[in-house]
């Protein structure tokens, strides 16, 4: 059953004057439980594609379906409701609140939606990412790898159906990036979450079941041999 499909922007139509056409005829379908990576160079439109898929922005043309709902036809608050029920995020720059401790950062989505046993769940999530000793540290007191692990704990604590990850290791050194990747796939496997990963790291992308290359606004499947 298709969990997510999207067809932003058909090629061939003239863009509105002053508008920059970033994506041209991208057609992508992601099934429930799949892990999909999108690779491309800086500025190729990967993050734009991700924001469209997650309903953070709307395409000027084409349609985006998420969990059976056409996002184009929904108001912002309705799209927010879809995200609230089923979507998690991990960002390149972690997006942790600097004045909150690790625990409070993980607690934030749970408290936002008044989920039961929030504190216990947040502590368990931090434990899963190996940070049970650092729950009261603020982001500035954590290393980059630790900060991203807090972000992973925050993303998985709500048990989302789909996780969007935007260059999650882009700000980390190779060794730390390796640990975070391992953790990401481990959590993904345990929670059976659908994973959409945007990265420029081909090795990282290869860990996903499917990989696509975004070049000049066009999305092409990457075959296993294409290294």
């Amino acid at each position: 059953m298709p969990q997510q499909s999207q067809t932003p922007s058909d090629d061939g139509r003239a863009a509105e004057p002053g508008l920059l056409r970033i994506l041209k005829g991208c057609d992508l379908r992601v099934q429930r439980g799949e892990s999909v990576s999108i690779i491309g160079r800086s500025g190729s439109g990967k993050s734009t594609l991700l924001s469209l898929m997650a309903g953070l922005a709307l395409p000027t043309e084409g349609n985006v379906h998420l969990l059976g709902q056409c996002l184009n036809r929904l108001q912002e608050d309705q799209r927010a409701a879809v995200r609230a029920q089923a979507v998690g995020f991990v960002f390149q720059n972690f997006q942790l609140m600097p004045s909150m401790s690790a625990l409070e950062n993980v607690l934030m989505p749970l408290e936002l939606f008044q989920m039961p046993q929030a504190r216990e769940r947040a502590l368990a999530a931090l434990d899963q990412v190996g940070l049970s000793e650092r729950v009261h540290h603020r982001p500035a007191q954590l290393s980059g790898g630790e900060q991203q692990r807090v972000a992973l704990a925050r993303a998985f604590v709500t048990e989302p159906d789909v996780l969007f990850a935007d260059e999650p290791t882009g700000n980390l050194d190779e060794v730390t990036a390796g640990h975070v990747q391992e953790l990401l796939f481990d959590l993904n496997a345990r929670t059976h979450t659908t994973l959409v990963l945007v990265t420029h790291d081909k090795a990282f992308a290869r860990h996903c079941q499917k990989a696509y290359q975004l070049t000049e606004g066009r999305l092409e499947p990457v075959h296993a041999t294409n290294d």
Partner: peptide, 23 residues
């Protein structure tokens, strides 16, 4: 600046604008 970061994250996580305004 601080509020904007937090609000953008909350919106991404699915909080509605009315709710954020209230909070």
């Amino acid at each position: 600046g601080r509020w904007q970061n937090m609000i953008a994250l909350m919106r991404a996580l699915g909080a509605t604008r009315a709710r954020i305004t209230r909070l």
